[in-house]
């Protein structure tokens, strides 16, 4: 197991490095000189030169990358071009706000999805199965930013029972776990949970149906095993596949919340990214994306390891 762990880590490093390389090159994707985004349009040439030197843009690209990577590793993501604030600090606040949404949406979407998927897989062709399949295909087809708007229209505009945007009173620093604040989470969390709900339902349904059609399950039944005991077998065998999907979906929640945060003006990473894009604040853009992508890489690795740990078919030697 330890050897496997090490091997998996070794495999992750090049991927993580590749991710940093992609994020780094975002600056150079941007049209024009990267410095033109920072310097005022009428800046004299010597100021531009100095800025270039300060930001290290006068050096060859590989060296620039090396410097940038070296700083990023120790947690220095630079400063915002627009506000001068440290990017790392901004990202940390945003990430924790995004996490709140993502974790709550995951809990909601995953538990409903597991339940629906299991029921559907068991009652294939029945009314419940059709309902679950309908929920699944709706979940993966609905433009979630639009669903957010529709929920706002229903619950804020028409009924006026839930807030349409923000994190409740005060900034995110004044967040409290009381209803006054938490009610602002309700709509974004529901909106965000729809995609994982659809995908988890679909995967669990397919996996359970597949396992139930296997001969060994029929053998278990023929042996006279009760439904509940068979269910335990099914759950055990479905676990690795389902776990992998849950892990991936949690990662996608972090990325996917960008659009939802914009709809609800939730001050998370999406909000931060959105602002960075419109101010052409490349360091903030880079920093946010780097943190989210690296988290996703890490999550993938953890899922892999956990999957290996619970799947008896994968050799761990």
């Amino acid at each position: 197991m330890l050897l496997y762990l090490i091997r998996r880590l070794v495999y992750t490093i090049p991927i993580a490095l590749g991710v940093t390389l992609v994020v780094f090159s975002l600056v150079h994707l941007a049209p024009g000189d990267p410095i033109s985004a920072i310097a005022p349009a009428d800046a004299p040439p010597e100021v531009v030169e100095r800025l270039k030197k300060d930001y290290g843009y006068d050096k060859p690209l590989p060296i620039q990358y090396g410097i940038w990577l070296g700083r990023a590793i120790v947690g220095d993501l630079g400063a915002s071009v627009a506000t001068g604030e440290r990017v790392a600090a901004q990202v940390m606040v945003a990430v924790s706000n995004t996490f709140m949404l993502a974790v709550a949406a995951a809990l909601l979407g995953f538990s409903l999805g597991l339940l629906l998927g299991f029921i559907a897989g068991y009652s294939q062709g029945g009314a419940l199965d059709r309902l679950a399949t309908g929920v699944a295909v709706t979940g993966i087809s609905v433009p979630h930013y639009w669903l957010g708007m529709v929920l706002v229209i229903i619950f804020s505009v028409e009924l006026g029972v839930l807030p349409a945007m923000g994190m409740g009173e005060g900034s995110s620093a004044e967040w409290k776990w009381d209803w006054l604040h938490m009610r602002s989470m309700v709509l974004p969390v529901i909106t965000l949970s729809v995609i994982p709900l659809g995908i988890v339902t679909r995967t669990v349904r397919a996996t359970v149906a597949d396992i139930l059609s296997q001969e060994y399950v029929q053998a278990l039944r023929a042996k006279g095993l009760g439904d509940r005991r068979v269910l335990v077998h099914v759950a055990k065998n479905a676990a690795p596949t389902v776990l992998a999907v849950l892990g991936l979906q949690f990662g996608y929640l972090l990325g996917g919340s960008i659009l939802i945060e914009t709809v609800f003006s939730w001050p998370g990473t999406g909000f931060l990214l959105n602002n960075a894009i419109f101010r052409r604040d490349i360091p903030v853009l880079q920093g946010t994306i780097l943190v989210l992508a690296l988290f996703f890489v890490l999550l993938n690795m953890l899922v892999d390891l956990m999957q290996t740990a619970i799947d008896p078919r994968i050799k761990r030697s």
Partner: peptide, 24 residues
Amino acid sequence: MRTIDVFYAFPSVLLAIAISGALG
């Protein structure tokens, strides 16, 4: 495939926004 893996390591929404955000 290893190169593909690097791009696959980004959640799709994030990658789309990152690239179009940088491109304008």
